[in-house]
Design a protein around this nucleic acid. Sequence first.
DNA 1: ACCGCACCCTGAGCGC
DNA 2: TGCGCTCAGGGTGCGG
Length: 292
Amino acid sequence: MPELPEVEVTRRRIAPLLEGRVIASVTTTAPSYFFLTPPATLRRALVGHRIEKLERRGKYLVGAIDDGSRLLLHLGMTGQLFSSAVTSPRLLRASARAILAPEAQPSFTPDEHTHLRIAFAGGGPEVWMRDARKFGKVEWLAPGRASARLDRLGDDALSVSGALLFAASRKRSLAIKSLLLDQAVLAGVGNIYADEALFGAGVRPTRAAGRVTRAECDRIAAALRRVLVRSIETGGSSISDYVAPDGADGAYQDERRVYARTGEPCHVCATPVKRIVVGQRSSHFCARCQAR
DNA sequence: ACCGCACCCTGAGCGC
DNA sequence: TGCGCTCAGGGTGCGG
């Protein structure tokens, strides 16, 4: 679900609820691979402490805690991080959505997928994390402790340059689309924005990375920055699960040019958008606008 | 070193 | 209605 724009919008809107508040309690579901740090350890580490600042590294949220430790959150494919005070149809199953009229939908109550609930001293809305597929992650890092996951990440995708893409792609035989998705090259790019950027640059997703020219790298970098910034401005893409912490939907899905538009006409030339598989991920492009 | 693949899960939507 | 199938915004670890 969440790529850089959705994670950034989440960070901006959840930070006011989180930053500087003393954590009163931490409630979790049972231990599972979702918790890289076991729930009991997590509770001990967080209760009584404050998250001073919430930052973003690629698709990770990193909370800086008052004792120098850090809390890492990753939303995986279906992760949702939100205020306990909000409701949204996206927090409900389709079956529940179908039964209840929108005005009759009660505020969300924690279900079996609500893996983390953080309450604060002095009350107010809690911060809840829900993830049906459990591809997300929660990890606590003791003071001074490095994180292999964070250390692996390349430059943040918002600061991508053509020079960086050109250097990273030389002598690489994989598809340029797969290179863009490699978090060690660029942190934050996911399937939607890789497809959208390649469309914007007029480059086919299957092109061998090593054969992409310097001029094309410049165009890809510019298009990537453009779609990421625009998506943040519009609140991200709400395609199936993504909901902002305040319960609002994003609107960038309405500005997509190719992603999940298979068979629909290209907005530029009306050629039906094609869907193929590149590196085990569905990929969408216009065969006319994105020449071989 | 690089690259493709299986795998970690649940739920929606489709054809029959 | 229900079954079986495919698909889904991510990341890791393995083997060739």
